[in-house]
Design a binder for these strands. Structure first.
Lengths: 262, 262
DNA sequence: CTCCTTTAGATATCTAGACGAGTGGGCGAT
DNA sequence: ATCGCCCACTCGTCTAGATATCTAAAGGAG
């Protein structure tokens, strides 16, 4: 029976109101925060903690599930429980849709990823016409059907973002926008070529826990929220010409905005 | 023994690879999504589900904990497990720091809340000088000590946001900014009066699960992430004059930004 | 009528075990 | 030396209880 490295973890306080499994979680959390267990490192096994604290295995597992819910650790079947490494984050600057970038003709995601030394990838592209959801319809100004462009973005093989663009059919149908590959500069470049000069974007940001489908698509660890961003693009006449619904793995992103003080 | 309303929930598939507690969670989630259980409504009790599915109580509890982790339900000791109501959200527009608002001399939070028909409140105000953290120091341009202003915002009694502003001492010391109540228009109005004309703000947005301390301060239900926003205010000379670190209950907020397309 | 106690039903925590299944190292057969 | 199998260790799931605590409603004492 392997014994625990001494001094890492303390004892339980039987007089405390705090539940035993919370006390154990607290001690593990503190040990992680203090760097006693480093990123990627293995925590003591369930059996070791059962020994150390003199509690039942379910109680130890309960502690682990607390830490998992906080996104601090992740369990690997047959191997152990590990401190979850904080992955490098991807920054989205607020000028990422500036015309000067668009005119360079390369997709923003690819350029940024290469600059960061990562290997970018886009997959599961789907382009089809469909019925607009109530929300999308409202944002686009009561359109019934839309062109939907779905794609998933990966960095170094890891899915980080799932996005769907919705465009009114009278704008997109029969244009390069309806093609899987819309060409250099992306659909915003095509929209401008089609005479829809872009004026501004509105972005709505929420954060929440992922649905099971999102967990699957983005291969999310437990305890990782998603950032839900809904961007609406407006042309010079004030018409909404595109709605882009994006779900991002929150542990992979920092959004960055510049606001004028005027 | 109370029996389950029939038809709400199906049977288990013993041949499925999916764990029983996940199957139960799936069925409950679907029933909630379909509106069979409405917001605020009570789910069947553990005992009822034990009866219905013929499993042990721990298995049912395991299912509930899955749904809690997703933020879909919350348990109330001695009462039951309830579908978590989606609270009204508070919108933060990107022009919330526009000078025209500041000149009206009322705190943005109060004005917005009143407009939404809510009862706003600010508490646990702390103003003190302290050592700057490494991050804050870097953002403010290598200052050693700062004035920190901490406050918590509540809507209708519910804490929704905890914020700390950090300002360099050479700017803030001995000014109204160092007072608990800085006066009409808030500290940004005072900064401008002191000759630091504000030029622009930078905001960084992250989402993550809350620390136990944040759970306590914001009285967060399980399965609710936080939005972590760090805003830096720059004056006309390009100097960072304030860093504001804000943690928001993600289920209470939608952030909204306008971006120019230029 | 008010206040307190009782009680039933609900969740919270914990124990002690059982079996299943993934991982990886050691060891024997080839 | 290598292949293949076994085994120890790991987490995953499930059972069947036990005690504690909280809630709300009912009933009794004053």
């Amino acid at each position: 029976m392997p014994s625990l490295p001494s001094g890492f973890l303390g004892d339980l306080d039987p007089t405390s109101d705090r539940a035993v499994f919370r006390q154990i979680a607290d001690q593990l959390r503190e040990a992680i925060d203090r760097g006693r267990f480093k990123e990627g490192e293995k925590l003591p096994s369930e059996a070791e903690l059962v020994d150390h604290y003199g509690v039942s295995r379910m109680t130890v597992r309960n502690s682990f599930s607390v830490l998992q819910g906080e996104g601090l650790v992740h369990a690997e079947h047959g191997k152990g429980v590990f401190v979850r490494p904080r992955p490098p984050v991807r920054r989205l600057a607020s000028d990422r849709f500036a015309r000067r970038h668009r005119e360079q003709g390369k997709a923003a995601f690819i350029v940024e990823a290469n600059a960061a030394g990562s290997h970018p990838q886009v997959d599961s592209l789907e382009v089809k016409e469909e019925k607009a959801s109530q929300d999308v319809s409202a944002r686009l100004g009561s359109v019934r059907r839309v062109l939907a462009r779905r794609r998933r973005y990966l960095l170094d093989g890891r899915p980080v973002e799932f996005a769907t663009s919705y465009l009114p059919l009278d704008i997109a149908r029969g244009t390069p926008i309806a093609e899987p590959n819309p060409g250099p500069g992306g659909i915003y470049a095509r929209l401008e070529e089609l005479g829809h000069r872009l004026d501004h974007f509105e972005e709505e940001i929420r954060a929440r826990m992922p649905s099971p489908a999102e967990v699957k698509t983005l291969r999310l660890a437990s305890g990782v929220p998603v950032i839900h961003l809904i961007r609406t693009a407006f042309d010079a006449e004030g018409r909404a010409v595109e709605v882009c619904d994006t779900v991002m793995a929150a542990d992979a992103y920092v959004l960055s905005y510049q606001l004028p003080a005027t």
